[in-house]
């Protein structure tokens, strides 16, 4: 005789089985002492668990109406509104700073930005990709050497909340809101700073000096970092994100949980600074 598993018996006890499965289970239980005993044990375990767990309820029942609750709800709403406001302001400040920096740089005849724009038309390297396309990078997920963004006709311009490579930086980014993503940094030499920045929006990004090398594949961004600085943008909305540096786990973001390893120098609500130690 085939017996039911604990999982099936538990589903039966919890009323999770459909009508047909319930009938079948009950028919079987009438003729099977083993499954009946297992069912009874699980049932009893459930009742004991319920009773035992109430021992832990030593907090007074919270008040959920009246003036005090109204105040608490107001405090919750105020805190939420203030966070939304801060987030919006940060975005505007960032956008304004970028625009000002671009304008100021373009006004100077010998500015690096002018040279950069000239080079950019000749090089096809960094490709920004839209959020619906999944893990991104250079087209087809191939290797790219670092270089500024290319206004290639086939690539979409970055949206306002997408990561943006600063002058002298190159990089890749990828949609990471509800797809797992792994960011791998290699060739980090002692003293190299890896700045992790928590960002709004849906795009994870990795940026480093223009002569760094970048590749991507499904759910993966990888960089061979040249120079002593790298920047990783981690969307707060990322569901599952791993950051590895020289094979070591730096960051494991799982939903709202964040586990941090690696050589942390500083950490605050906006990001984490890692510095690669000597040796």
């Amino acid at each position: 005789m085939t017996h039911f598993s604990d999982g099936e018996l538990q589903a039966y006890l919890d009323g999770e089985l459909g009508e047909k499965d319930t009938r079948e289970m009950e028919r079987h239980l009438r003729s099977c002492p083993e499954c009946t005993a297992a069912r009874n044990q699980l049932d009893s375990a459930g009742r004991i668990a319920t009773l035992a767990l109430t021992e832990l309820d030593t907090l007074p029942e919270p008040v959920v109406s009246g003036t005090e609750t109204e105040e608490r709800l107001r405090a919750i709403r105020d805190r939420a509104a203030s966070r939304r406001h801060r987030r919006g302001r940060r975005r505007w400040v960032l956008a304004a700073s970028v625009i000002l920096a671009l304008a100021a740089s373009l006004a100077v005849p010998a500015s690096p930005l002018r040279a950069w724009l000239a080079r950019a038309w000749e090089q096809v390297v960094l490709v920004f990709q839209g959020p619906s396309a999944g893990p991104a990078s250079s087209q087809g997920g191939d290797t790219a050497t670092g270089s500024p963004a290319n206004p290639d006709e086939s690539s979409e311009p970055p949206a306002e909340d997408e990561p943006t490579a600063a002058t002298g930086e190159a990089g890749l980014h990828a949609y990471a809101a509800d797809l797992p993503i792994q960011i791998v940094l290699n060739d980090l030499t002692p003293g190299t700073q890896v700045q992790v920045v928590f960002v709004d929006g849906t795009q994870a990004g990795v940026f480093a000096a223009v002569d760094s090398r970048f590749t991507s594949g499904p759910g993966r961004l990888e960089a061979w970092v040249s120079g002593d600085q790298a920047r990783v943008e981690v969307p707060r909305a990322a569901r599952q994100l791993l950051l590895l540096g020289n094979g070591q786990l730096f960051l494991d973001k799982d939903g709202d949980s964040l586990a941090v390893g690696g050589p942390v120098l500083e950490r605050d609500a906006n990001g984490i600074l890692f510095v690669i130690p000597d040796g």
């Binding site: 604990d6 999982g7 018996l9 589903a11 375990a45 459930g46 668990a49």
Partner: peptide
């Protein structure tokens, strides 16, 4: 998997008690 995990957790919990 919930049924299986829950049954296992309940059995273990009661055993520990």
């Amino acid at each position: 998997s919930v049924g299986t995990l829950l049954a296992r957790a309940r059995r273990k919990f009661v055993g520990e008690l």
